[in-house]
Design a binder for these strands. Structure first.
Lengths: 340, 340
DNA sequence: CATATTTATGTAAACCTTTTCATGCGCCTA
DNA sequence: TAGGCGCATGAAAAGGTTTACATAAATATG
């Protein structure tokens, strides 16, 4: 850990002022080529890299964005995070992750970092699985947005902040419509959970479409938890509730993991897929194409949202005040699990 | 974006000096309770949060660690990243991710960030799938380690830096031994790739154990790519190479995704699992327990490595000079895919 | 060739903290 | 009561940049 050289050292050795070094390092114009080369040579020789903390301090901000998410081990969020990271990095921004885990972590410490770091902005996706976190999210967002640009994802709070959403309700309609078109009447939803943003939930879309079709509803709610396990539990409950001839013949699952859990449990119980039960998942995880049967699913296009969020955040002047919001339409990916 | 208040504002309004405010905010002792309360009250009123860039500058470092990984959409790395993040956050460190993607991203820009940010340290896991990246990794690590503590994961470079490793070779031995114990003689390896760190690869362990057992080798290498797809391709190749009676009867797959790809392809071709083919995966991804059949796999305990890496990095004084290295033993997780 | 304009460089203030050192104060001990 | 001590506080330097402003040098203009 040799003590680093700073802008003064470089300026000295190159025989110029620190202003010139600064200009060279940040690629500003109006510096003579010969001067520039001299400075660069000295800098390279010493392995000089400008201290970004000082830079950030002087410029009152930092080419860095913060991403606030629920636990990222949910593939939906990790996909989103990866995309955000990729896009931001390509634009020269650094990205720092903050996970909201209920209870265990001091939210206040998180806010200290989030605000103290003088980030360029924040992308936040609240936890739509949990009603309690809603008011919490609201508070966080209120303070954050006073300090820097914020872009929300799937988190329509009562603010005028820009929010990008996957159209969950539309996804559910797509799934139900597809199953009904294949002749199914008893279609179950695995994972109905009340969220504060009720208009844009899978449950809302499911109910909406089922009623439109005049069909009876079968909802299997579960609490937030490991999706795979919840999926299999739903099936256990379902099988113990209905006799074989009353059983739903099709399922729309909260996400692909829930679908997998359900498939596993059904197959374990001797049901053949898709003959005895049709299934539609949600998220279009890579693995879903490699299941047996390959899973028909809803692609929510979360990557697009990730990209859009980064760009919206960075070109914030354009959108921030106007309360720009947008929701993007999902796509049905037909594979084998409905026998189509 | 109201202009933030700084330590002077708070000091003024509270009628104390900035030194006192600093002491209060950082929880130092020796400040009168009444003074402390006054300062805290003013700070809270203004929503004052110390500027961490200034703090970092003054202290010459930053409670932040950098994590350098290959593309994180590989579940192995995302699991590692999640664990590192969790552990670091719990210890009050912020974490910033840097993904090395071949070509597209400017390594130099990455180094600017990595070094310029004055991080507390760096955890780096090189790309063991790709031989080219080895020398690249070496260079990066050389420069990084001159600037800050570095802990390596699965990346034994010719340095004296601490390196934590999953014991890949031992994992392979475990798998082969298990399959052989179940009576299999023709055991294939899906994913033999030459890496510079040959002694600790799956291939090394596989060959080692196969020879010890006096068995013939079947290796299906593939280039880095989407694991699921590579898995299914390996099967296609395998099936077209051997007649049914010469075909391997068991498979050890590079990771669980490769295993899934293989399973899918085998089932598509009409093979029954595990009757016609036994499979062992690697990584113990959550989904592997929910496949049909549930996948027997090797747990590399990557989470433990993540935790250990963070702690090693932070208590660096203790270990850094001694070139501390350690490898942790994998575990065989027996489920259904071998018919055991 | 003198002047106006552009381009290259330097000076110094600003960004916001932490931390060393000095000072003042109240209290204890001899 | 003088000397010593511990605690609470303040003043000022240091940390490494950017950038507005000033100036000097080079070039263009008439």
């Amino acid at each position: 850990m040799t003590s680093r050289s700073n802008i003064f050292d470089i300026a000295n050795e190159a025989g110029v002022s620190i202003a010139t070094v600064s200009r060279v390092m940040s690629g500003q114009p109006n510096v003579r080529p010969v001067t520039k080369d001299k400075v660069l040579a000295v800098a390279r020789k010493h392995g000089y890299r400008p201290n970004l903390l000082a830079t950030g301090l002087a410029q009152r901000k930092h080419k860095a964005i913060g991403v606030v998410l629920p636990l990222i081990d949910n593939p939906f969020y990790s996909k989103l995070y990866i995309k955000i990271h990729q896009e931001a990095e390509a634009l020269g921004y650094t990205v720092t992750l903050f996970q909201i885990r209920r209870g265990s972590y001091s939210l206040n410490a998180m806010m200290d970092d989030l605000i103290g770091l003088r980030l360029s902005g924040i992308i936040l996706s609240g936890d739509t699985m949990n009603e309690d976190s809603y008011s919490q999210d609201s508070e966080l967002v209120a303070e954050l947005s006073q300090n820097m640009p914020v872009v929300l994802i799937n988190t329509p709070l009562p603010t005028s902040l820009p929010c990008l959403s996957t159209s969950l309700a539309e996804g559910a309609r797509l799934a139900v419509r597809h199953l009904n078109r294949l002749g199914h009447k008893r279609i179950a939803l695995l994972g109905g959970i009340n969220t504060p943003t009720y208009e844009n939930t899978r449950e809302y879309g499911y109910l909406d479409e089922m009623r439109r079709l005049g069909l009876e509803e079968y909802i299997y709610p579960f609490s937030a938890g490991e999706s795979l396990f919840e999926g299999s539990m739903c099936i256990t409950r379902m099988l113990s509730t209905y006799s074989k001839d009353k059983l739903p013949t099709a399922i729309f699952a909260f996400n692909d993991l829930v679908a997998m859990g359900a498939m596993r449990q059904l197959q374990k119980e001797g049901y053949r897929l898709p003959e005895d039960m049709a299934i539609v998942g949600c998220d279009n995880q890579p693995v879903s194409a490699y299941l047996n049967p390959a899973l028909t699913t809803i692609d929510l296009h979360i990557e697009e949202i990730g990209c859009a969020a980064v760009n919206l955040l960075i070109n914030t002047d354009r959108q921030q005040e106007t309360g720009f919001s947008q929701s993007i339409q999902p796509t049905l990916i037909i594979r084998e699990s409905c026998g189509a």
